[in-house]
């Protein structure tokens, strides 16, 4: 294997560039999930949101020929799935874990059904060209940094802005303060006049926007096609990243970037290694992201010094039963 092609200085810039790109779908979903969990809702439907966003963006972009219509459609479907989650978890207050799992299964079935109905079963799936790179003038010419950060497709810039926006909303706005209050002490927030259920609804919808956008980035900017279960567990990885990032959007995004770079690295090692005939089985590379995710969550949970998990995470707030003594 040509290790210079994998790890050499000349390979570093494209590696980081690809890493940032690959990090975005999972990262967006994870940051949205972080906000949602800060409001106390364990949104396990995230994989379903991503998958629906992926299908929505594919259909939008394929039929209109416009990437931005794809993005809007993806976000729209993501929000729709999140709204179903909110209806069950916040309005009806049924068990959040079950809601999430069932919605993931529903989204899996519904996206396959829609795609098969529209395109049939084909060996050559319809495709479109993914977004080209959009080099930002001046900034893109900075040596090193420019090629890594400012020579990306338009959706990467939008994603970075979206992540920044979630951070800003969570820590610098009244809504964000309510979100954090509702996640820690819903009873106290309620007493202070915050509408707990409304805040949680909104948090879930934000998670839908971010997850839908993540799905759209995956399709419109990276793959240009749709397949059953194309998100391949990215939503679950994103939930794991929330734990890894201790519920802080920026740390969660940092984790996503590390993952993206790891992903880019393993793709490159596989390519340089020559595929199937190497000594290392390629299935190991395929399983690696999931193994690494498990390891990272175990490490993050085991070594956490503070209990960063929102105190009311997973528990619906019911006024009449809200006489907990804690």
């Amino acid at each position: 294997m040509d290790w210079a092609a994998v790890l050499g200085a000349g390979a570093l810039i494209p590696l980081l560039n690809a890493g940032i790109r690959l990090a975005m779908p999972t990262g967006l979903a994870a940051v949205g999930e972080a906000l949602c969990q800060r409001a106390g809702v364990l949104n396990l439907s995230l994989e379903g949101i991503l998958l629906s966003g992926a299908l929505g963006s594919f259909l939008g972009a394929y039929y209109s020929g416009q990437a931005w219509i794809g993005v809007i459609a993806g976000v729209g479907l993501g929000v729709a799935v999140a709204a179903l989650m909110a209806l069950l978890s916040v309005t009806f207050k049924t068990e959040q874990v079950i809601n999430g799992i069932v919605i993931v299964l529903l989204a899996g079935g519904a996206t396959s059904l829609a795609y098969e109905k529209l395109f049939g079963v084909t060996t050559t799936p319809p495709r479109f060209d993914t977004l080209p790179s959009l080099k930002i003038p001046l900034l893109g010419s900075i040596p090193g940094v420019g090629a890594v950060l400012f020579d990306q497709n338009a959706l990467v810039y939008i994603s970075i802005l979206a992540v920044g926006a979630v951070w800003w909303v969570l820590y610098r706005t009244r809504f964000g303060l309510s979100v954090r209050a509702v996640g820690e002490r819903p009873d106290a927030a309620d007493a202070a006049g915050v509408n707990v259920d409304r805040i949680r609804w909104c948090a879930l919808l934000v998670s839908g926007v971010m997850g839908g956008l993540g799905g759209a980035v995956l399709i419109v900017a990276q793959l240009g096609l749709f397949r059953d279960n194309i998100t391949a567990g990215r939503g679950w990885v994103a939930i794991a990243l929330v734990i890894f990032g201790r519920w802080s959007p920026l740390r969660v995004m940092g984790g996503a970037l590390l993952f993206g770079i790891t992903d880019a690295l393993q793709l490159r090692i596989q390519a340089a290694g020559g595929g199937v005939e190497t000594g290392v089985p390629f299935e190991l590379f395929q399983a690696l992201p999931y193994i690494v995710t498990i390891a990272v969550v175990v490490a993050a949970t085991a070594w956490a010094r503070d209990d960063a998990q929102p105190k009311s995470l997973g528990f619906p707030y019911e006024k009449e039963a809200g006489t907990r003594e804690d």
Partner: peptide, 10 residues
């Protein structure tokens, strides 16, 4: 939930 789901892929 997370660990059991991810182990499916493994």
């Amino acid at each position: 939930v997370i660990s059991s789901l991810l182990l499916n892929y493994v």
